[in-house]
């Protein structure tokens, strides 16, 4: 079997068991009527960990010095007036950097440059590889739209924009309750991102538990959400009563809501708590990427290395003054007599 070695090496098995254990834990909580704990305490704690952990990580990163401007090689930097500058790839103004960063965050432009190195016959070739870009983009946009749609559970009255986003997402009008396009897309994209890790040998080799765990967790969240909407339905009015009580800081012991809701909520809480500890922090990290967030103005502005310490220099003048007598004796030329 393709991934049997990795399963045996427990790279895949442990993360999978971990997520399954979370599901079972949430289910046990429902059976034991620990609704207050799993419905109120855990979500609050997870959210707090997410917020504080996120800040701490970013501030820690912000403290490391970044001395140089890093010109990227993928665009002409500002040079002589008749050489056309690539203002987006190699910006020399803050506005250009904002443009580059915005497009990076929204469209993953640098991932679009992803290449595949392969042997074609006897020659080394670099082919274009856009599938990762597409899969990543589809996943992230679906995730964003789903989270925005979820705001209907956290606001009263619900803003028109959120309702319209849901209308747009369900405009195919398939089934009742209406099928959301992003539900299909997020499951497809996550499945692709997982299969890519197990089917491509090189990527399987470099994949770690820390890569599989977030994937399984997200798959678990999406799958439990989809199951809750289309199969094991819950009373959304009761759910919203709970979520509104949470965000108005008057938490109320929720009435009976199906177990699938608590599983969904617990997996989401796990994701939030895990977020600052994991590679998912690229959400904040992308804004600190030196090749994306620096104006390339090394030629027009002087940048002082932030960890410069005072260097003891011995200038030629001082040297000559020190050795004047000896140099004169040896007949060496002197600058000052």
């Amino acid at each position: 079997m393709w991934a049997w070695r990795e399963v045996r090496e427990l790279k895949i098995l442990y993360p999978l068991l971990g997520v399954l254990a979370l599901v079972l834990l949430a289910y046990a909580g429902v059976v034991a009527h620990l609704n207050v704990f799993f419905g109120i305490v855990v979500p609050y704690l997870a959210f707090l960990l997410f917020l504080v952990g996120f800040m701490v990580r970013v501030i820690t990163w912000g403290r490391s010095p970044v001395p140089f401007r890093i010109p990227t090689t993928c665009g002409q930097q500002k040079s002589l007036p008749w050489i056309k500058q690539n203002r987006l790839e190699n910006p020399s103004s803050a506005l250009g950097v904002v443009g580059r960063m915005t497009l990076e965050v929204l469209l993953f432009r640098s991932l679009f440059r992803n290449l595949k190195t392969e042997k074609r016959g006897d020659r080394l070739a670099y082919g274009s590889a856009k599938w990762l870009w597409l899969g990543g983009l589809v996943f992230h946009w679906s995730f964003l739209i789903i989270v925005l749609r979820h705001l209907r559970l956290f606001m009263e009255p619900v803003p028109v924009l959120i309702t319209q986003l849901g209308d747009l997402d369900s405009f195919l009008q398939i089934g009742i309750p209406l099928f959301y396009i992003t539900d299909g897309l997020i499951l497809a994209a996550l499945t692709y991102l997982f299969l890519r890790r197990v089917l491509v040998p090189q990527i399987r080799y470099i994949s770690l538990q820390a890569d599989y765990f977030p994937l399984f967790l997200l798959l678990g969240i999406a799958a439990s959400g989809v199951l809750m909407r289309y199969v094991w339905k819950v009373d959304i009015v009761e759910v919203k009563a709970l979520t509104m009580s949470l965000v108005t800081l008057r938490p109320e012991v929720p009435l009976s809501i199906g177990a699938i809701f608590y599983i969904h909520l617990f997996l989401v809480s796990a994701l939030f708590a895990y977020f600052p500890l994991s590679k998912l922090m690229h959400m904040g990290g992308v804004f600190l990427s030196p090749t994306r967030n620096m104006i390339n103005n090394s030629r027009s502005v002087r940048h002082i290395n932030p960890w410069n310490y005072p260097v003891q220099v011995h200038t030629y003048e001082a040297y000559e003054a020190e050795f004047r007598a000896k140099m004169k004796k040896a007949g060496l030329p002197l600058e000052t007599e």
Binding site: F50, L51, F54, M55, V58, I59, G62, R63, S64, P65, V66, L151, F154, M155, E156, M244, V247, T248, L249, G284, F287, L288, P306
Partner: peptide, 28 residues
């Protein structure tokens, strides 16, 4: 911190977005 002002400003914006469901429901 290097470029501390911008990083803190960015973090504040992030915190406001994350806390938005709480902020807009204050007193409701």
């Amino acid at each position: 911190m290097y470029k501390g002002g911008r990083i803190i400003a960015g973090l504040l914006l992030f915190a406001c977005l994350a806390l938005m469901p709480f902020l807009i429901n204050i007193g409701k």
